[in-house]
Design a protein around this nucleic acid. Structure first.
Lengths: 226, 226
DNA sequence: ATGGGTTTTTGTCTCTTTAAACATAAATCC
DNA sequence: GGATTTATGTTTAAAGAGACAAAAACCCAT
């Protein structure tokens, strides 16, 4: 079906998660052209001939969301010969968690994309290519990482309450956690800074705000939550 | 330095570990041509336009070593624009552990390779490209996996003694383990089948042989050794 | 101002698992 | 019988999981 003389094309796709409106969401773009015209897809693009894979992913992340300085990690390389209907495209997927309040979706309509939007991961539309599979794999990996290092801070604003932190964990792990045990565990890790501020929220007891103190991403052996 | 119009080339390189002569070794091939003519390198090759990445890695593994049915896992994709001196080559690295007694190095001298040999990982020669980096990363990942699932069985013959198993772990983790605790732990996991055979070895007490019973690769949460 | 509703905050106990340390007897060969 | 290697249990301490209840702070409505 393919001529063996055809060359490969190499792209990168970026899975960006955030928490908005109490939901875990992923950033998608709507395609302007075939294939999959009008369908939602992960932000992605061709890797330039003289940039590293990491640089390509960072560039694309910045182009779509204007976000920088992010925990961005190579996820997996997807290379099924049939994943792209027209040609052989191998894609190196990256994933990131970002704070929703850091985000300015600086989208200027262009020739490739007609829309950029956050979608709840629990109700995704039909996606282009194998992007659904990529997102699912990314979620799985995010959960695995969450057990070992507290990457959830990437999802939260600079100042947050323990309840917000717990909700982030519950959303990613998709299960409820015990409130007292959760707090106990996190406070014992000594990675949170207790602030002298409180939420001036609504009709309830104000909650103390915390910020992450030292963020040591790859340290911390041992489980957080299982 | 590169024209942006140049196309990417995509290869796969396979890191194959085994235990031979009481050492952890990696399979290398000697290159017949430039670049890096005469240097040792990982077995690798171009991904065909209509095969999956996994298939490409399996094919190359088979071409070089005649080994099949192997725990083969995508490791990482290396894409530094300067990793290949002549052109832009992105390589998708895989790694595998194999039993030394399964191996028939069926090497027929050809136009690309002049030699195939196992090299102790502790004393590697100068390697082509970034292959040293790939091997080191692979070792790191192997160690991480070893903590969670007992993949070391891939390195051992069908029948083995507990001492051999322990030595495999010690070689990969590069530290000594307590004999009693090691045996206790493994026997409690109920993944070994106790055979009614013994080594008819040399001048010492014969050791009982074991084989792996059910091999559940991705199961088994929880640490094995840390 | 009072009371009801809601959310935050905090500590203890149990049970299980894990880590680490440690010594002696048995089987074989010479 | 001497050398070597296999085989085997117990104890201790530490860490982790999980279950569980009551008081305090705030808002609002009456």
């Amino acid at each position: 079906m393919f001529k063996e003389t055809k060359t490969h094309e190499v792209t990168t796709d970026v899975v960006i998660f955030t928490i908005k409106d109490d939901q875990l969401k992923v950033l998608l773009v709507k395609r302007a052209h075939e294939p999959f015209k009008g369908k939602w897809a992960l932000p992605g693009g061709y890797i330039r001939i003289s940039e590293t894979l990491d640089d390509a992913a960072l560039r694309i992340l910045k182009e779509k969301t204007n976000v920088q300085n992010i925990y961005l990690e190579q996820l997996y390389t997807f290379g099924d010969p049939l994943r792209h209907p027209n040609s052989r495209v191998i894609t190196c997927a990256y994933f990131a968690l970002i704070r929703s309040d850091d985000i300015v979706l600086s989208f200027e309509p262009n020739t490739e994309i007609t829309e950029v939007k956050w979608h709840p991961v629990n109700s995704l539309p039909a996606l282009a290519f194998d992007h659904k599979e990529i997102i699912e794999y990314s979620l799985k990996r995010t959960r695995e990482r969450l057990e070992f290092c507290p990457i959830a801070f990437q999802l939260l604003p600079q100042k947050f309450t323990l309840t917000e932190l717990q909700k982030a964990y519950e959303m990613i792990l998709m299960k409820k956690l015990d409130k007292r045990n959760f707090r106990k565990k996190f406070l014992s890790l000594a990675i949170l800074k207790e602030l002298d501020e409180y939420t001036k929220s609504g009709s309830k007891r104000p909650a103390r705000l915390y910020s992450f103190d030292k963020i040591t991403l790859n340290s911390k052996r041992g489980h957080f939550f299982s």
